[in-house]
């Protein structure tokens, strides 16, 4: 089932908040996972695993390094669902 970009952002923000303790409002499209949200590679892979589960997509390891911002991840998930 495909989600809207807003639904994906909301769902992803919940996953990130759960993993990091950040407020969901901080997880905005333009935020960088590493520079703005201070997410290390272990946490990033945890977020990816939960996102794959939640959105029914597969995000290969080699793609993860291209997901610099929250927006990149939302777009990737959206494309993968469509």
């Amino acid at each position: 089932m495909a989600n809207t970009e807003q639904e994906i952002l909301t769902g992803l923000a919940e996953i990130v908040a759960e993993e990091t303790g950040l407020d969901t409002a901080d997880v905005a499209l333009e935020k960088s996972f590493t520079d703005d949200l201070d997410i290390d590679s272990l946490s990033m892979m945890t977020i990816v695993t939960h996102a794959e589960d939640k959105f029914g997509v597969r995000i290969p390891d080699e793609e993860v390094k291209n997901l610099a911002t929250v927006g990149d991840a939302v777009s990737y998930i959206k494309t993968a669902q469509d």
Binding site: L42, M45, T46, T49, E52, D53, R58
Partner: peptide, 9 residues
Amino acid sequence: RRLLPMTVP
């Protein structure tokens, strides 16, 4: 693929 990366630590 469903195993979390924090499993070992």
